[in-house]
Design a protein around this nucleic acid. Structure first.
Length: 792
DNA sequence: GCGGCGCTACTACCT
DNA sequence: ACAGGTAGTAGCGCCGCG
């Protein structure tokens, strides 16, 4: 049988663990393939090989009849590159691994117990190379229908899985859902507040808005939802913030109402919280698209409508928008209720549209890391890479280190150059391609290549400043993994060349090469992460030291060629663009440093203040890049962002400082005459800890407290939108959630003095402009203009 | 009680 | 809950002054 693997889970049947592979046949028929031959195991390392037989005896003696140890064998493995003899201890029931691990680690002579913390289904993924979102071929025996599973065909695996190279997935059924809750108080209490709408959209073109008959009858609504899911039978269920909200609320509410939320492909399969905080729906893949939206830094406010707008799925100005705090009003007012239904419907359609944008990437990430699609989004970058590393370790016969608690030790990072302030013409931005991964490869950096003692002549790389030594050969774990990743990416990009960019296959491969790049780029950060299994501070420290050395050498080469370096950060250099000299520079850097540098972009004009990490540039095609400034920060108001953007544009394109001043004045005038709508005055800030844990009463914290007083819960990670109102006292005392404030109460002067003027002056003060000039009532005085344009 | 000052807390950015 | 380097705002405590 050929099938596409969706998910791997397991159950204990009788007294035997059975792996469940949920998949689709080539014609998209859902199937379940069982494998009852796989057993959980873990390893024990001993202090001294001499005690192996004795330890082996004692491990065997631990076996209990209810859940026996099946086998204890000596195996040859590697641990941080060094050959070791380990005891492989195989048990019967996955849940007993924890018990035996604890017992085994108490046996005298046992140094370490390894790989006992890997979930059984992931163990299978790794050992059998059973990657989710991939095609397989296997001999199976039909078991017929089984009432316990909501799939038409169930099979038993008879022989090993073989992967099939095939890029396109089968047709998958995707269902997007979104719920609306009735809550006049603003707080959401599952014991009181009913679900009034469940909106659904699937990729077979069906859209449904299920509504509650009345506020006392949402149990029936939930049942209708369950029926819809079971009837449509989606492979993938997508939501937006559904891990934190929709499922949680459905679960609590259905529990309160005593309604069964049995939507899985395994009967009695109630969604439940699982790895990385995601909600798992048995037999289906539930994907919370918010996880992927979180990774788009360009979107500052990650609401569903903003994300749909950004991705071009559904434009904001073409859709019905209802603020969450007014949903109950639209329900109560029967003339407005159709709008609410339309809103919910559009939410579901947007969610489905976003799924089409994100799922192809998610599927590639899933098939590379082995993490099932429903987990891969919820897992952070570090864990994604770690699963990839664990799969690789298995292939190399390397034991997987335990996750251990370590003390955080900071180390020195990259170099950031002092910018030459002012306006510069024709500047090339050059950067080293994947600098850190390539340094790791070039200098063979990792925990297993580190040499603590003596090292023969030319047998080690010696790291500048630190004098750490890394073996030249053989290649270490990180080097091997990174070379594989880069090689794979190269091959994918090669394959893409033979395809039309419009073809579905091209798009799939493009997502694959992106996923490969993301994993490679995370490797340095991962090595320096205290939570990593392959944490190695000295390695991360060596990488940044070599990075500093590399960029410093490149600067020297630029200087030697007579190129002026304006600015640089980590792996980039801003250099005066002289075509021939630049190509010479590129060649020389490449040959002298053994790392590739290339032109990233060319600015016709670029402006720096004295600050690092902040600049505005005019690209060759006339676009304005704003980097680091207020205009790209999500915690400044729209009005300040707009002003700064316009000022930057005027300065870079027309060089006319007086035009910029007039623009700022006009905005201040509009602000003072009340022409600016309140939503351009909202400041959004993230709560990074629980409200009680804050040491100072910052404005966003004060605003959050006011939300809580209204009964609205604000969790860690949520964004608080507030405005500053008139009155006395500090800003915190006047920071209110925007929905609590009327236009006339806004403290316009705060916005003039603390938003518009600072944002404008950040750029204009270099040209000698002061706050007084911006605030002065508009008058066409010539003398002032003359003064202001002294540099323009 | 007030303004000025320096420090700290806090957030979001850049690579 | 991948790293370190950086800019900037606002709160807060302290000081001197009266």
């Amino acid at each position: 049988m050929r099938f596409y693997l969706l998910d791997v889970s397991y159950e204990v049947e009788g007294n035997v663990p059975v792996i469940l592979m949920w998949g689709l046949k080539e014609d998209s028929t859902p199937i379940l393939i069982k494998d009852n031959t796989f057993r959980p195991y873990f390893y024990a390392l001993v202090e001294d090989e001499k005690v192996l037989p004795e330890v082996k005896r004692r491990v065997k003696a631990l076996s209990r009849p209810s859940s026996p140890i099946l086998e204890v064998v000596e195996v040859d493995k590697k641990y941080f590159g060094k050959p070791v003899k380990a005891l492989k201890i195989t048990t019967l029931i996955p849940e007993s691994v924890r018990h035996y691990r604890d017992e085994v680690s108490k046996i005298p002579g046992v140094k370490e117990v390894l790989e006992a913390d890997i979930r059984f289904s992931m163990r299978y993924v790794i050992d059998r190379d059973a990657l989710p979102c991939g095609w397989y071929e296997a001999e199976v025996e039909a078991l017929g229908r089984d009432a316990r599973y909501r799939v038409p065909e169930v099979y038993l695996l008879k022989s090993g899985l073989r992967r099939i190279e095939r890029n396109l997935p089968p047709k998958l059924k995707v269902l997007a859902f979104d719920i609306e809750v009735y809550s006049p108080s603003g707080s959401l209490r599952p014991s009181k507040d009913p679900i009034i709408i469940v909106a659904l959209a699937n990729n077979d073109g069906d859209v449904k808005v299920l509504t509650a008959e009345d506020l006392n009858n949402d149990g029936k609504l939930i049942e209708e939802f369950v029926n819809y899911v079971l009837t449509y039978d989606p492979d993938i269920i997508v939501g937006y913030n559904s891990n934190m909200f929709d499922w949680q609320y459905l679960l609590s509410r259905s529990e309160f109402l005593k309604v069964k939320l049995d939507v899985g492909r395994a009967k009695g399969g109630i969604p439940r919280q699982s790895a990385y905080g995601h909600i798992s729906v048995p037999g289906r893949l539930h994907v919370d698209l918010y996880n992927f939206a979180e990774e788009i830094p360009e979107i500052k406010l990650k609401s569903l409508d903003e994300v749909a707008d950004y991705l071009g799925v559904m434009k904001k100005d073409e859709r019905t928008l209802i603020p969450w705090y007014e949903i109950h009003k639209f329900w109560d007012d029967l003339s407005k209720r159709p709008l609410l239904e339309k809103y919910a419907k559009e939410d579901a359609i947007s969610t489905l549209g976003i799924a089409e944008k994100f799922l192809p990437f998610a599927m590639q990430l899933s098939s590379l890391t082995g993490l099932p699609l429903d987990q891969v989004g919820a897992a952070s970058v570090g864990y994604r890479l770690e699963w990839y590393l664990m799969r690789e370790a298995f292939k190399y016969g390397e034991l997987i280190p335990n996750r251990v608690e370590r003390e955080y030790e900071p180390y020195k990072g990259a170099i950031v150059l002092e910018p030459a302030k002012g306006v510069h013409e024709n500047i090339a931005v050059l950067d080293f391609t994947s600098m850190y991964p390539n340094i790791m490869i070039k200098y063979n950096i990792g925990p297993d290549t580190y040499v603590d003692g003596e090292c023969g002549v030319n047998e080690c790389y010696i790291i500048p400043e630190l004098k750490y030594k890394f073996r030249v050969s053989p290649p270490g774990f990180y080097k091997n993994v990174l070379e594989t990743l880069l090689k794979m990416r190269k091959a994918v990009r090669e394959e893409m060349k033979s395809l039309s960019p419009e073809s579905p296959e091209y798009k799939v491969l493009d997502e694959r090469q992106r996923a490969l790049k993301v994993l490679a780029n995370a490797s340095y950060g991962y090595m320096g992460w205290v939570g990593a299994r392959w944490y190695f501070r000295e390695g991360a420290e060596a990488v940044t030291a070599l990075g500093r050395k590399t960029i410093t050498e490149a600067i020297k080469i630029a200087g030697k060629l007579g190129l002026r370096v304006i600015y640089g950060d980590t792996d980039s250099l801003f250099v005066t663009y002289v075509k021939d000299l630049i190509s010479k520079f590129v060649d020389e850097v490449n040959s002298a440093l053994g790392l590739e540098i290339k032109i990233d972009k060319i600015y016709k004009r670029v402006f720096f203040t004295e600050a690092k990490k902040r600049y505005v540039g005019l690209t060759e095609d006339g676009r304005i890049d704003i980097v680091g400034f207020e205009a790209v920060r999500g915690d400044w108001t729209d009005i300040a962002r707009d002003v700064q953007e316009e000022v930057a544009k005027l300065i870079l394109t027309t060089k006319r400082v007086d035009d910029a001043i007039n623009h700022v004045r006009k905005v201040i005038e509009d602000l003072r005459s009340g022409k600016i709508p309140i939503d351009k005055l909202i400041i959004w800030k993230t709560l990074t800890k629980r409200i009680d844990d804050y040491e100072v009463d910052a404005p966003h914290v004060a605003a959050a407290k006011r939300l809580e007083n209204l009964g609205i819960k604000v969790d860690v990670g949520s964004k608080v939108g507030y405005v500053i109102v008139k009155g006395t006292g500090n800003i915190s005392s006047r920071a209110y959630p925007y929905m609590m404030v009327k236009d006339k109460d806004i403290d316009v002067e705060y916005y003039v003095k603390h938003q518009v003027i600072p944002a404008a002056l950040r750029i204009l003060s270099y040209f000698g402009v002061t706050d007084k000039q911006l605030e002065a009532v508009k008058k066409e005085g010539k003398s002032l203009m003359d003064f202001l344009s002294r540099k323009g």
